[in-house]
């Protein structure tokens, strides 16, 4: 069995020591730090990105919250505005209606007065008109000249009979 032949024991031990020491020192000083740097760099990058993502998410949540708040506020304001303006409108309508009623009443009263006045005036004038017409008719048809006084008297008398 060649393994138990001590001829090359020293040689094997010597080269094992040389190569393994070289390997150990090379890996320890060169290769492993490189790999660990890369791994660390990657981990840092991942952590950084995760932190940024978390921050952004928090910001987004805050923004969403504030938007919701604003929307609610705006809704309340609009509701209030609608309520106030509708109340105002109702009041205005009532006022306008009242004013209109008053105006109409006044106009009706004035009109009634005017009508009454007109009526009275017409009634006042009617006597003289009647006298004039009668006089003209008599003159044209019967060629009778009559004094205004007589005519008025006659009319008064007739009026009294008519009434």
């Amino acid at each position: 069995m060649p393994q138990l032949n001590p001829e090359f024991f020293v040689s094997q031990l010597f080269w094992l020591a040389v190569f393994f020491s070289f390997l150990f020192i090379f890996l320890w000083r060169v290769s492993l730090p490189r790999i660990s740097t890369v791994l660390e760099k990657r981990q840092n990058k991942i952590d950084e990105n995760l932190a940024t993502a978390k921050e952004l998410q928090e910001q987004a949540q805050k923004i969403e919250l504030s938007i919701n708040e604003k929307i609610n506020k705006a809704k309340q304001e609009t509701d209030n505005l609608i309520k106030i303006s509708s109340e105002k409108l109702q009041e205005n309508i009532l006022n306008e209606l009242n004013l209109l009623d008053k105006e109409l009443d006044e106009k009706i009263i004035i009109s009634e007065k005017e009508i009454n006045n007109n009526k009275e005036n017409q009634m006042k004038n009617i006597n003289s008109e009647i006298a004039n017409i009668t006089k003209m008719t008599l003159e044209k048809i019967a060629n009778i000249k009559i004094s205004t006084e007589d005519l008025n008297n006659a009319i008064e008398t007739t009026k009294g009979n008519l009434n």
Binding site: E7, S11, W15
Partner: peptide, 17 residues
């Protein structure tokens, strides 16, 4: 006085390293 010949075993170690 020691035999530290470079052998096929050493060569395999060299390749490995």
């Amino acid at each position: 006085g020691y035999n530290i010949s470079f052998t096929n075993s050493s060569f395999a170690m060299l390749i490995t390293v």
